[in-house]
Design a protein around this nucleic acid. Structure first.
Lengths: 347, 347
DNA sequence: AAGCAAAATGGTTGCGCTAACATTTTGGCT
DNA sequence: AGCCAAAATGTTAGCGCAACCATTTTGCTT
């Protein structure tokens, strides 16, 4: 026999019926130890491997979890993925991963493709899905998680934190440290980066307002905080951080005394470049980042950054999907996992 | 109607037969434009999504590519993955990714699981599969790629480079630069790392032999090159690099004048730690790494490292699998993609 | 030993789709 | 108009498995 063995072949060899073999594979406790042993031996002997497609078709359960991330190369999503994999492991689940390259349209296509696998659940990054994608997901009737950021209008389950609040908090930290000519270095400018930038602007606006009120008598302009915003649609890298630092220095005529980088890659690049420009950190220039990568804590000076529980978010996404899939009809309100500012030498 | 629409529903709405709808999805050029249009409209109207399981079962083609990497967290495999995804994109293929945590046994289990999806091909990392895994793969009859390193006894397709040669070449570079008390810092010690270490040892042994021959008259010991090897089974990180540097300094009583780190994470950590120890790089201490991460080129001084075409390897793996799957019965001999030593300031 | 509930096992059927073959329609030619 | 090959479409059957329900066996109690 040259074709691959199937259930029936195993059943014949083991001297039982096909359905018993099937049960050994899916509900081993429903089968007497003796039969189970015979079946297991037959499986080993034939090198039998269950046909997942047939199983999924007959049982209407795919055992697949679909995940779409915006970028494989960004280590941030990698950590989320690790959380997802760690949570998936004890369950009989395969992960199908798609990379939508930060494009909602690609994401839409991917969703359509991945839904054809009839996944048990779907994990998306961010909250900017197209209308058609939302419709597809509604029709699919499976648990969907929007991860990383929060929205008032979730498709289903929503886990994340406010990038606006984080951006604002970090900027307030810089203001509190006395920096007044603060640059924002932004790359790729995906929605979350834009929220961080919005938080940055809000913090400065608020500060200027408050400051004007205080110094209502004096000339206000002298105490105003001046933001310098340099952004690019290029994707982020360490090298780019250095280039953007030069841009902001040029734009501010060297006045810039602090930069808030939209992520730690840029921040590291800015740090390396600042050293070459003979800027003392943080005396001449403060550097703040986002994501709290390992390197940020270990360079000298350490880079102040925003930490968030990425691994845990991934885990939680899987857990809530499984909860929901197993019938728990609890409503999940958006789950804010928060963030924290890791203050280090760079500010 | 509450259940999900199927092919027949679409066919009825479009006024054609089910098989025509199926053809629109798989061989659109075999269907007249008029019918195709009707079908496409019906699909859109119903929000129809093909049942992949049924399709796979009936057609005996899964449209799935299985990939197993040893670690999600190691950026090296991430880059390979990116190559895989880029090559997969133009084809109708989904990637199912497994993480075996550097364990051949986990890998074996994963292989069994992933094979149940009847993938069109399988990409593995390294060449250390268990015997049972090899047997499973032989039975499966699908193209298999062993990636990253080379072997004389490949399961099927083999793409990679010699980590032994790379380790040897880097050590020879250090010797050529005049360093004589060279440390090897190794973490996790997976097979590839061990080959690098073997190359390191061989280079030093060769050098000592040659040197003895030359100085046969003089006392040989004074000119001997002394290796210091510090390894740990812990997984690699920047922080660990600093700790291992301290270990090797302690072990060598401060005599060590160069360290060859088994990867750039360790090398970065060693660099940061060396600065804090007030060692001048490369005057007091040379640092060499492996993998040529982006940061290695941008820190100051840049870290000398071994570069390899990881992205291209991933791409090539997919392409060879597809070639083989489409019937090209060409035999592939192990494909050596080579490596190059990126010499930078740290040595 | 008889009776019975529970556990174990089996037969039938259909999941949704596509391969293979069969049939119909189309369009170009004389 | 009539013919014919090629293109388009349809019919039938079955992929391998698990749900459902039916039947048999087991192991316990009286």
């Amino acid at each position: 026999m040259n074709r691959k063995p199937n259930l029936k072949d195993v059943a014949e060899l083991a001297g039982v019926s096909a359905i018993t073999v099937s049960r050994v594979l899916t509900h081993p406790d429903k089968v007497a130890a003796k039969s189970r042993q015979k079946v297991e031996q037959a499986i080993a002997e034939l090198g039998y491997i269950r046909n997942h497609a047939a199983s999924a078709l007959a049982s209407n359960r795919s055992g697949v979890l679909a995940v779409i991330i915006p970028s494989l190369s960004n280590i941030v999503f990698n950590e989320v993925l690790q959380g997802i994999y760690s949570a998936v492991k004890p369950h009989q689940l395969q992960v199908i991963l798609g990379d939508c390259h930060y494009s909602p349209l690609e994401e839409e296509k991917l969703i359509a493709t991945l839904l054809s696998q009839a996944p048990e659940g779907l994990i998306l990054t961010g909250t900017d899905q197209t209308d058609y994608a939302r419709k597809l997901l509604q029709n699919a009737g499976i648990p969907v998680v929007q991860l990383m950021e929060l929205t008032n209008n979730p498709i289903d389950i929503n886990i994340g934190f406010s990038h606006f609040a984080a951006g604002k908090a970090m900027t307030e930290h810089l203001l509190a440290r006395g920096y007044r000519r603060i640059g924002f270095l932004g790359a790729r400018m995906d929605p979350r980066t834009q929220h961080r930038l919005a938080g940055f602007r809000k913090a400065i606006e608020d500060w200027n307002t408050a400051n004007n009120a205080k110094n209502s008598g004096a000339e206000p302009s002298s105490a105003r905080c001046e933001p310098y915003v340099v952004t690019t649609s290029q994707s982020s890298s360490i090298k780019l951080g250095g280039q953007l630092l030069q841009s902001v220095m040029a734009e501010s005529a060297g006045q810039c005394d602090a930069v808030f980088c939209c992520n730690d890659d840029l921040a590291l690049g800015a740090l390396f470049a600042a050293r070459q420009m003979n800027l003392r950190i943080p005396a001449d220039l403060a550097i703040a980042g986002f994501n709290d990568l390992e390197a940020s804590a270990l360079v000298d000076p350490g880079i102040t950054s925003v930490a968030s529980p990425r691994f845990a978010m991934g885990q939680q996404a899987v857990e809530l999907i499984l909860q929901k899939a197993s019938g728990a009809q609890t409503e999940f309100s958006p789950l804010d996992v928060g963030f924290s500012i890791m203050v280090r030498g760079s500010t």
